[in-house]
Write a protein that binds this DNA or RNA. Structure first.
Lengths: 179, 179
DNA sequence: ATTCCCATGTAAGCTGTTACATGATTCA
DNA sequence: TGAATCATGTAACAGCTTACATGGGAAT
């Protein structure tokens, strides 16, 4: 149940509507925990039923702004101190188990494309981090946490990029040595 | 639909029963794509209906050994050359967005525990990789692919361990400088 | 005999996605 | 007035987990 805690976490920063939260998930949290609006609206209704959030105000177009209750704050805190769920599900690494069924030429193509993808992501996160620091966004507590997560993204995708390049080098060797 | 391709990939190596496949998922593929036996049995039935796999033999205790058909082989190959789904869903990184709600002391505990977890995983994968190389498991094509995936695991968790240590250092600074 | 492992499956429920639907407001 | 964006939701389906259920075979 990470989605509910993701919502509680965002609301800990500032009150927001379902629409706002859906957007922040897409642009910010989506990189590590994707969520679509139907799921978000449903979860918000449940969180309200359980008293973890409440409606602060209602605006135009049925817009509802939610705010964290103290119960919600407690639940968020309890969650952050509990054992994390380290379950990883990442398709590109599943694929790598079956690389042996590809020819060296095919593997080379795949690995080069993967490396490019990871490099791009790494650079994107590094740039965002730099921009945040330059514009003073890292001086608020939540801004510093975003910086922390970005740092994880940079390191993670840097590692994957180096790995994919290592794979492509091996494929290149296999290719030249096999005929 | 990664589960079905994971099953096809395992069957590309050698025919196996649902039970065998469930075990291999748990011990091998589970690190990047967890799957429980009910899902596996269900998917195998569907794969058989669609002609991607077939029953090679039936043994004691209703044991059914499946084998890849040429259609299945084709589907696996097509999948490996298609665009990967780069969706990542990893709870520990979602949590890091909300680290700012913790006190420096709490964050320090969390980060130290995380670092230990990642170090352990990294070392485990490094050891398995070494053992595989020493015992000649990396000389078969599929063994070399396992080695490739293990290399990703080592690099990935090494990066996360360094990140968590970086986080814990920051928390330590905040702790000493805040009073 | 009993316990453990082998081996398969069903059923219920939860999580998450895609498609559909509706209507208000803003801007060109 | 038409298009884009705001804003919320429902319905159907797909993917995955947990609990339940059954029975054969091997070993002590």
């Amino acid at each position: 149940m990470s989605l509910r805690h993701g919502l509680l976490g965002l609301l800990a920063e500032a009150p927001a509507s379902g629409y706002d939260l859906a957007k922040r998930f897409e642009e910010l949290l989506g990189a590590v925990w994707p969520a679509r609006h139907p799921q978000i609206y449903g979860e918000l209704a449940r969180l309200r039923d359980e008293g973890l959030i409440e409606i602060e105000s209602e605006g135009a177009r049925a817009r509802k702004v939610y705010r964290l209750t103290s119960e919600g704050e407690g639940e968020l805190h309890r969650w952050l101190l509990s054992e994390p769920d380290h379950t990883l599900r990442y398709e590109p690494l599943l694929r790598s188990f079956f690389f042996w069924t590809l020819t060296p030429a095919e593997l080379l193509d795949v690995a080069v494309a993967e490396a490019a993808h990871y490099r791009t992501l790494r650079d994107t996160y590094a740039q965002i981090a730099q921009a945040k620091e330059a514009s003073g966004h890292t001086q608020t507590p939540s801004g510093r946490s975003v910086r922390t997560t970005l740092e994880a993204g940079v390191r993670l995708y840097d590692a994957l990029a180096e790995w994919a390049e290592w794979v492509s080098e091996q494929a290149r060797k296999d290719q030249s040595g096999s005929s």
